[in-house]
């Protein structure tokens, strides 16, 4: 079974068609990259997968783990294992990262009918992940994304991904605004996720990793660090070209103009 299958997806935003028949299937273990010029619908795809209000599905199917999720609430999709790393993570003043992460994890576990983690075990996991991502553990006491640098916000997204252990991670321009050091840290986190690193710090056996990644990016440089299995070009609301990672290199050399839109 595919992790996600997108069939003939048409999406309007404020009545305007943005996605016009997207087809995409992602199998467990795969990393797919979506590239494309500004305004091609990349972020719309990420948002509609996560169920952000304001994105109207006018046609097509969104099948996640065998279930049509198009009518599901965002939190229900998250609870079934869909994660979105935000392009611009928003701040929530006064709510500490610690409370927020615990609240999120408890909700996801409750949905799976698992008891909440003990505070001790939770703290152990979060501290270990923070160290792996070069985040000062003091960040846990600060408000969610409050006063974070761009790089810290993105690393915090990756931390949440590793902590919450989703089945599909959609990364919306996670590389934007990162310097090269931060980019490597983020890439390492994504590779760890793909390879089956659990929140408890163990590695799953390769045959047991049932995770997939959808990278949305402008730049090929991210793909030097996270090697995709497939690269798709989205333009004019459709996937017009698919290939392996050499497609990304070609795009970098020649731009998008050669593609029929």
């Amino acid at each position: 079974m595919k992790i996600i299958e997108i069939n003939n997806l048409h999406v309007n935003v404020e009545g305007k068609p943005i996605l016009r028949g997207v087809n995409l299937g992602i199998a467990p273990g795969e990393v797919h990259a979506i590239m494309g010029p500004n305004g091609s619908g990349k972020s719309t795809l990420a948002n509609v997968l996560a169920g952000r209000p304001g994105y109207e599905i006018v046609d097509g199917e969104l099948v996640f783990l065998g279930q049509d999720v198009a009518a599901m609430e965002p939190e229900e999709r998250a609870q079934s294992g869909l994660f979105l790393a935000f392009q611009y993570p928003v701040e929530i003043p006064g709510v500490s990262n610690m409370e927020f992460l615990k609240g999120a994890l408890d909700s996801l576990r409750a949905a799976r009918e698992e008891p909440p983690l003990s505070t001790v075990e939770f703290m152990k996991r979060v501290r270990a992940l923070a160290a792996r991502l070069d985040l000062n553990p003091e960040f846990l006491k600060r408000g969610v994304n409050e006063g974070f640098s761009g790089g810290e916000k993105k690393r915090n997204e990756i931390l949440q991904m590793l902590l919450l252990e989703p089945r599909l991670a959609v990364l919306d321009e996670t590389d934007s605004g990162l310097d090269i050091d931060a980019l490597q840290v983020v890439a390492r986190g994504v590779n760890d996720y793909r390879d089956g690193l659990t929140a408890a710090g163990e590695m799953l056996d390769p045959g047991q990793v049932e995770r997939a990644v959808l990278l949305i990016t402008h730049y090929q440089r991210l793909l030097d660090h996270i090697v995709p299995d497939f690269v798709h070009v989205l333009t004019g609301g459709r996937i017009v070209e698919s290939g392996d990672r050499t497609l990304a290199l070609k795009l970098e050399e020649q731009g998008y103009a050669w593609l029929a839109s």
Partner: peptide
């Protein structure tokens, strides 16, 4: 300030239902 749609969506995307999210945000504010 306002409880923004973006804040709510962030919480929901992490699995937290909107009422809990608002209560969390308001508690943080207080």
């Amino acid at each position: 300030s306002k409880v923004s749609d973006e804040q709510l969506f962030l919480c929901q995307q992490r699995g937290i239902d909107p009422e809990k999210a608002v209560s969390m945000i308001v508690n943080g504010f207080c």
